[in-house]
């Protein structure tokens, strides 16, 4: 127990309080500067861009993953090669974000019009008579092309969790509904979805936490260029830019923390309920 406590104290509890303290200090953490780091952040265009992009990620990625995960889990239950299909879709979970970035950068690869396209996306578009584009350099939309990578990885997680939850739905309930003449679609919306509500929340929060911290993908694909900056990458940038600015870095980290606090409280309440049970 003791070593665990010491490590938790040194690596998590002390740093959290220290980060909060540093956010009120200058770049070397020596002089108290009040809220000037926060003022800087709110006026910094990169920071605003990051907040905006993080919001975009938070809306799009968990929603899409949940939706796709549930769809795939439902479909895979109905076909004989479902297990095989699930294995293939789950596989990206094992791949690093950097590795996935290389994979997708290759998919998005752009060669000037008239040349043979070696990226499959542009090749398909050219095949159907469109113009090739440098996808990751198109402001605003490029965010979505980066999100695709995260969705590609995380849908597998949503899928397996849904699969497990679907199996927990009592067969009698479904049978009863069928006897009463409910169609598959009605069953899906009136029985399965309510049954899965807690699972949906769990998946949603898990992916939300992950998305808040998204870093590797942005660093590897664009390093925040072309309007794709996110908080975690901006923070990493400030940690080392010009010898490192611990004040600004800490401030940005705190904004990431802000995003997980609601989830933290929700978890705590669940834990309390469990204790009382």
């Amino acid at each position: 127990m003791a070593p665990a406590l010491i490590i938790l104290l040194v690596y998590l509890i002390y740093p959290v309080s220290e980060t909060i303290r540093l956010s009120f200090f200058d770049n070397y953490g020596r002089e108290f500067t009040g809220v000037s780091n926060y003022v800087w952040a709110l006026n910094d265009s990169d920071f605003r861009q990051s907040i905006l992009n993080n919001f975009l990620w938070l809306i799009v990625v968990p929603t899409t993953c949940t939706f796709l995960g549930l769809t795939i889990a439902t479909l895979a239950d109905r076909v004989w090669w479902g297990v095989f299909a699930k294995t293939l879709i789950f596989m990206p979970m094992a791949i690093s974000f950097v590795g996935a970035s290389v994979i997708w950068k290759f998919v998005y690869e752009y060669r000037g019009a008239g040349n043979d396209q070696i990226g499959i996306l542009n090749a398909i578009i050219v095949y159907f008579g469109g113009d090739p584009h440098a996808w990751i350099a198109i402001p605003f939309w490029n965010n979505f092309f980066l999100m695709v990578i995260m969705i590609w990885i995380q849908t597998g997680l949503a899928m397996v969790i849904f699969s497990a939850a679907l199996r927990a739905i009592p067969e009698e309930t479904l049978e009863a509904a069928r006897i009463d003449g409910a169609g598959e679609v009605r069953i899906f919306f009136y029985i399965i979805i309510p049954f899965l509500s807690e699972t949906i929340v769990v998946i949603w929060t898990t992916i939300t936490i992950l998305v808040l911290k998204v870093f590797d993908i942005v660093l590897a694909m664009t390093n925040g260029q072309w309007g794709t900056e996110v908080l975690a990458n901006l923070m990493f940038d400030w940690m080392f830019r010009g010898g490192g600015d611990s004040g600004r870095g800490s401030t940005i980290a705190l904004f990431i923390m802000l995003g997980v606090i609601p989830i933290m409280i929700w978890n705590l309440r669940r834990f309390k309920m469990e204790q009382e049970r």
């Binding site: 740093p15 980290a253 705190l254 978890n267």
Partner: peptide, 18 residues
Amino acid sequence: ATIVCLLVVPLQMSLIPI
């Protein structure tokens, strides 16, 4: 309860101090 809280703390919070 502290551990439950720490579960979701982004590791970005720890980088600079450590």
